[in-house]
Amino acid sequence: MLEARLEQAQLLKKVVDAIKDLVQDCNFDCNDSGIALQAMDNSHVALVSMMLKAESFNPFRCDRNIAIGLNLVSLTKVLRAAQNEDILTLKAEDAPDSLNLTFESSDKDRISEYDLKLMDIDQEHLGIPDTDYSATISMPSAEFKRICTDLMAMSESVTIEAGKDGIKFACNGDIGNGSITLRTVQDVENKENNIEIALTEPVSLTFSLKYLVNFCKAQNLSKTVKLHISNEVPLLVEYAMEGGSYLRFYLAPKIGD
């Protein structure tokens, strides 16, 4: 059986909030290393890969592989009943038809308990090849969100260009064009403000802003975001959480002349 206790419900609330507009029905695949989810959006352009490691829970118990088939809209309805600071416990049997969720207020004067009906979801998993990306950019997640939102006002697509001089986000729209160039920032006092660019070769790729703006809903999970880019392969946008857990988004590029 699965028993997983989170000190603060907000972790799961934020994760589900960040992905529920991209994917609807998906399996939480549980085993002794944690809870994983992999799902593509309906258009097969974006993929969500979530890993909540056992270390992010206390305690975490799962002795077998258990697939918890969830509708994220339904899960959101239940999670809305949890306060951010509540202690959240997930429980499920080995072949579950429901997921038990309890929310305890930190001073333990209130315990809420819900059972959510599960779905049988036959989901195919994609093999994601290990890639040595040509460019890895680490930046404040709020900055990335601002860039994507600002450019989306002008255009459907953004071209991300990483070179030795910095990283440039450029768009071309009906009303004109715009670009934002970022250079390396080293803020010793406040490392969250750092902009780091690791480059093995220059890259330039175009992506749909609609999806990038959607990924930015994960901004609350982490103060920093990492973009991994190589020419002609999907972009990886990664939000790292405590305990080695992460939320990753993959986005297929736009290619052509």
Binding site: E124, G127, A252
Partner: peptide, 14 residues
């Protein structure tokens, strides 16, 4: 114009 690619042309089912 550039054409949106599908993820399935990069990632294959396990």
């Amino acid at each position: 114009t550039k054409k949106q690619q599908s993820l399935t042309s990069f990632f294959t089912p396990k």
